[in-house]
Design a protein around this nucleic acid. Structure first.
Lengths: 140, 140
DNA sequence: TACGAAAATGAGAAGATTTCGCATTATCAA
DNA sequence: TTGATAATGCGAAATCTTCTCATTTTCGTA
């Protein structure tokens, strides 16, 4: 139960909702909205409230356990923070999300921030495009 | 009245709200939320509805006249599309937004998209940090 | 310039996402 | 085991955006 340790380290009590949500994020991987998490847990027979999901995800975010992304459109999505920062490629047709890390860009950003007198705290780079799926290429 | 030409080119009828909104964006520059646009026009004595502001801004976006940004937090912001793509630096303390263009990053993004089999359509890079204002540095 | 079809507007309702308030329940140190 | 404290679940509320629809405006044509 290393989930418990992570929750404890975050300074939060070990509660069923928190353990379930963290396990789900670890099991599923990828990017889930609060609604996704809520539905999946309901489907698995758990009793949980949507408000709790939002609360817990926000707490996990503050604790650095998960990262929240505000991609275009409606809902925010959350993913486990595996320590390594990365950016995203999103297919505008099928919604697929791929991750990438590019040191050239990372370094350049630091230089840009410095040039503008900013102390960099975070950054978010999202590339929108059409992925290599046959249907996506055609739809375009 | 070159606003009228731009609106006409976008395939839209010349109406008072559209002209007022476009003029305001040209006059103000920078990034305004729909609410901002609405309030400023009301203050200037115009009669306009918030729904119209949203509608018009969305139409302008579709027509390529303005760009919509979904920065973190609540509302989307809009800015005139002056043709040249640029990215943003945002101060997490005072909310100041600065713009920048960096060719190294632009080129790198194209390469990354290609490597992943994506045809790039758009991208959004936002760097969050603390700007050089005295208060912002202290608040941090 | 006036007419009229088609499009646009304004106001409020409705939708979507997220947060809040509070009574009830669960956690965990002693 | 107990009790103080924190967390939950629920519905209400807040926030941002879109929709509906009756009314008004635009603009090509007469």
């Amino acid at each position: 139960m290393e989930e418990n340790q992570e929750i404890r380290k975050a300074g939060l009590k070990i509660t069923l909702p928190r353990v379930k949500i963290l396990s789900l994020l670890e099991k599923q991987g990828g990017h889930l909205s609060a609604e996704d998490v809520y539905r999946i847990l309901l489907d698995e027979g758990e009793e949980i409230g949507l408000a709790t999901v939002y609360r817990v995800l926000t707490q996990f975010e503050s604790a650095g356990l998960v990262v929240r992304h505000n991609f275009e459109g409606g809902q925010a999505v959350f993913e486990l923070d595996r320590g390594s920062h990365h950016d995203h490629l999103i297919c505008m047709n099928c919604g697929r999300v791929e991750e990438f890390v590019d040191n050239t860009i990372e370094k350049r950003q630091i230089e840009i921030a410095k040039k503008h007198g900013f102390r960099i705290k975070d950054h978010a780079l999202v590339i929108y495009g059409i992925c290599s799926n046959k249907e996506c290429k055609q739809a375009e």
